[in-house]
């Protein structure tokens, strides 16, 4: 069971209150119709899926009902930071020695 810190509610809450939004910081193409099938498929489906540091989206479903970001280790499950939409992560895979 993860304890996740919601940066909006400023509380550590149990994992069951949240739902997962997948890889973070994927920029939606401004002109989807201008993309090739290759680029559109890559945007929709292809993911980094790293073993280690992962920036990901979480949704505080039964709390404030807002999306935020987390930097989590996908092997140890340690949550290194959570931050609000619009903010940048403080920790990257390179800084964590990976």
């Amino acid at each position: 069971m993860l304890l996740i810190h919601c940066p909006y509610c400023r509380e550590d809450r149990e994992e069951e209150e949240f739902s997962y939004g997948g890889e973070a910081h994927i920029v939606r193409p401004l002109e989807p119709e201008a993309l090739s099938d290759q680029e559109w498929g890559d945007y929709l489906f292809f993911r980094k899926n790293p073993r280690g540091i992962h920036h990901e989206m979480w949704y505080h479903q039964t709390g404030c009902r807002r999306y935020f970001y987390a930097t989590r280790n996908t092997v140890s499950y340690e949550i290194l930071e959570t931050y609000m939409v619009g903010e940048k992560p403080q920790i990257s895979a390179a800084e964590a020695g990976q």
């Binding site: 993911r47 899926n49 790293p50």
Partner: peptide, 18 residues
Amino acid sequence: GNSGVVAAMAGLRLPVES
């Protein structure tokens, strides 16, 4: 489950999540 890790060794991404 480690397919994404092995794919990354060849510079590829896959549409999978582990």
